[in-house]
Design a protein around this nucleic acid. Structure first.
Lengths: 201, 201, 201, 201
DNA sequence: AATGAATGAGTGTTCATTCAT
DNA sequence: GATGAATGAACACTCATTCAT
């Protein structure tokens, strides 16, 4: 097969998967997890049911794909923030704000797999990697803050993890409380962390 | 109707609900959330499926009941610990250890409602109350720690919430990673908190 | 559980299976094998689709049951004839006539399993047994015919098998030709066999 | 249209049909009747699925074509044997051996139409013709045997049919029993027939 | 003529819920 | 009150067929 046709097909496939991904996320936001039926996804994507099965072996595969992209999307978001050149305390603040903004939109991002029973699908390595990437972002900011003399010296590895846990906990709690905003909670988190980090501002 | 018969009936009803609750938890642990079928619950409880509907209007009601009891069970657990007379730092440690032990067993306790789509079922007040009770336990320990001169003075309201968030985050992360133990994570949390609280031990 | 209730339930179960069996056969005769859908069977039996699954694990189980009963029904039929006290030549004639009459009604009797892809479902022993039972009937008649001096002495084991093969072959051919009657073919068979058996009548 | 182009197209069409036929048979042998899907056939033939529909109106047409060719192939096989110049008893033996060898390979040859629900598709004349051709081969051998004084005089029309029925019956039985070899059965048939035919060898 | 992605009607199966006994 | 067989809507998935390229 010539390489051009091959490339073209791949592009088409990606476009289709994109459409399915976006349709899935829309359905998820509109009808919740219980509304995530193949028919519903197909409808929203404007394609036939059968077409879904041209791109994914079965429902589980499709949802796994959606879950991974969604998660990556979130991770990229916070990694971008961590890369910015800005004072560490500002970046920390941004990270929290942006993260919650993102999750307010895709409020299922870190628990989709779990709810869909896809936990066993993802290889352990990959899971660990997700966790490490997220924690690394925070740690990087903490380390920068220390070099910038904004934060006091401390074990940034541990504190980054704990900070991450607290963010996840806030997301969960927020979801549980069904509360529209997590501003109060995230502010509490930032306050406590600033104290902990010795950030006087 | 005479009061004795009424009482008797109530006792019987409670006994039945107990059995159903316990059966549900067993099924949950054995077959996971996907195995939580009415038939399965009835089998495990040793009653007919129709009987379930004498005590609960429908599946959702039953699961809501189970979820509430399960959550209360967890809360009582940590409240007991918070009531103990012991040094605050020891109690804090115990709380974390006990809480994770409990959740290792009933690892669904705080997310059952969510997964079952029961979020909208619980009145907002009650949800808030759950959160407040949990946070109050921690706050109580922090306050005691301050009186006992074990912890430094600080805004215990905020720190208790953050501590709680971190615990929930660890649970979530642990579930996500499917990792058997959360010892490492909870130790990180305790280390960070002890630093934060100025607990020198 | 008391034995009466147990018995009663079994009777009910049998009745239900009977109804399903008969409905299946009717559907088979009416719509052919391609019309043998669960919905169709349920409709014909006057029950709900779900009810079918109270008595059979899945479509395959149901069809296997139908197939076995149908086959047994045919075997019993010819075994009855073989048991009759009558001259062997008459019995041989009856067997052929009755067998084809039966198969005209249930013209799928010996090939249902095959068409439904159930071949692998039946244990080899059972299959062999079916064949042996059928052949034994014929052999019995041949042996009687020899004692009655109606047939000449010969290896009845072999000839019974060959006779059976010819019957099956006629059934197949008939089915292939879609011809309404097999009278001509079975008469040919009887003629040839009578010559072979030395039956002068 | 010029005749050359016409011819060329026909040749191409035949080549394509050949490929499709062979692919179908391969798929049949590899995946069984349930695996006989249009996609599978196209894959095996190395063409696109849409191309199948350039040569056949629909699945049924294709399978009908395959079935006819397969059957003809079998018939040609035994007709060749019947044409051979060799002693009749030897030819009879060969016919049986070769026929079963052929059917061991294409063990569906005589029942494919039936299983695929194509029975109604074949014109009655053609079906009768198939049967007549097969019977004629055997009859020819019987007639030759009589001229060669190998077999006794008898109604070869009837006996040829019965012999044919028995062969078909053996095939069916064999298929039903899923037994690897039909040597025993066909030997029984030959023994009985030799006795019947008065062939002393 | 060849392609193969898109189509969508059709099927087996599940399971919460009902109700006659 | 207890039972559990009956119910049937709902869903994932298949595959022959079409048609734009």
């Amino acid at each position: 097969m010539n390489s051009f046709a091959k490339k073209q097909r791949q592009v088409k496939e990606e476009a289709a998967k994109d459409a399915i991904y976006e349709a899935s996320v829309e359905v998820l936001l509109e009808h919740g997890i219980d509304g995530l039926k193949m028919q519903e996804i197909a409808n929203k994507a404007g394609i036939a049911i059968g077409t879904l099965y041209n791109y994914f072996d079965n429902r589980e595969s499709l949802l796994y794909y959606v879950d991974c992209r969604l998660r990556n999307s979130g991770l990229n978001h916070i990694e971008e923030i961590a890369e910015k050149s800005a004072p560490a305390d500002e970046k920390l603040n941004d990270l929290v704000v942006e993260f919650f903004t993102f999750c307010d939109k895709h409020h299922i991002v870190f628990s989709l797999a779990d709810k869909l029973g896809l936990r066993d699908r993802m290889p352990k390595d990959e899971k660990t990697d997700v966790f490490e990437r997220a924690a690394a972002c925070i740690r990087k900011i903490f380390d920068e803050g220390i070099s910038q003399k904004l934060f006091r010296e401390h074990d940034t590895n541990k504190s980054a993890k704990v900070f991450f846990f607290a963010i996840i906990g806030i997301l969960e709690t927020k979801r549980f409380l069904n509360s529209e905003s997590s501003v109060g909670f995230s502010q509490d988190l930032l306050d406590v962390m600033n104290t902990y980090l010795g950030n006087e501002k």
